[in-house]
Amino acid sequence: MRVEVSVDGGERELRSLYVWLRQDPAVRRGAQVALTQAPSAPDQMGTLADVLQLVTDNAWSAASFALALSTWRQTRPGRRSITVQRGATTVTVENGSEEELNRLIEALERSDGDDGGAEAQEV
């Protein structure tokens, strides 16, 4: 399963989340985490790193991932919103409420749609 994560606040915030997730044993155990460049429109230039990409395996725990995102978000000034996409499903965590995190976990645990299975590609 492939999951893409973006954060408002620019590349600095995205890199902070990247480091946080790479240091989290539960996330690291079940997913490859990489910074990737999202496809840009033909008339736009992309930045060095636009999204985080996680490619998960059987040890994946959506709940552990959601907890890691929530914990990272609480450490950031301004409580950045986080958008998580899996296939055609997108969930945005705005306030970090229990309802939002449960919605995120449910979306990640659903096995619908083609979300790819290739390895994460570093930028």
Rank of each mutant, 00 (worst) to 15 (best):
M45D: 09
R28D: 12
V93K: 00
A38M: 12
E99K: 01
L101A: 03
G9R: 00
A120L: 08
E122R: 12
A34C: 07
D115I: 07
V7P: 01
W72D: 02
A63H: 09
G117K: 10
L17S: 02
A34N: 05
N95P: 00
E100R: 01
R76P: 01
Q53V: 08
A88K: 13
R86Y: 09
Q74E: 09
E99F: 13
P39K: 15
G116W: 09
R86W: 07
A38C: 08
T92W: 03
A120N: 06
V84D: 04
I105L: 10
M45V: 07
D50G: 08
A107L: 07
G87L: 06
A34M: 03
R103S: 13
A31Q: 13
V91M: 14
S61Q: 15
V84E: 08
G10L: 06
I82T: 01
G113K: 11
Q37R: 15
E4L: 12
I82Q: 00
T56H: 13
A59S: 11
A118H: 12
A31K: 05
S61E: 12
E119T: 10
W60I: 03
V123E: 14
Q23H: 07
V5A: 07
Q85Y: 02
L14S: 08
G117C: 10
R73A: 05
Q23P: 00
G9N: 04
A49C: 06
I105D: 03
W72E: 03
T75G: 12
T75D: 15
V91K: 05
G116S: 13
P42F: 11
E106D: 10
T90R: 12
R103Y: 02
R79E: 01
S97Y: 00
G78N: 03
D57Y: 11
A31S: 13
A59F: 08
T36S: 15
A88Y: 07
V55P: 00
S111P: 03
G117W: 13
R80A: 08
R80T: 02
Q85K: 13
R15W: 09
S16N: 09
E109V: 02
E122Y: 13
G46Y: 10
V27F: 04
Q32V: 10
Q53I: 04
L17F: 02
N95K: 05
S64G: 04
S97G: 05
A59V: 08
L104G: 00
Q32K: 10
V51E: 11
R73I: 01
A41C: 06
G78S: 07
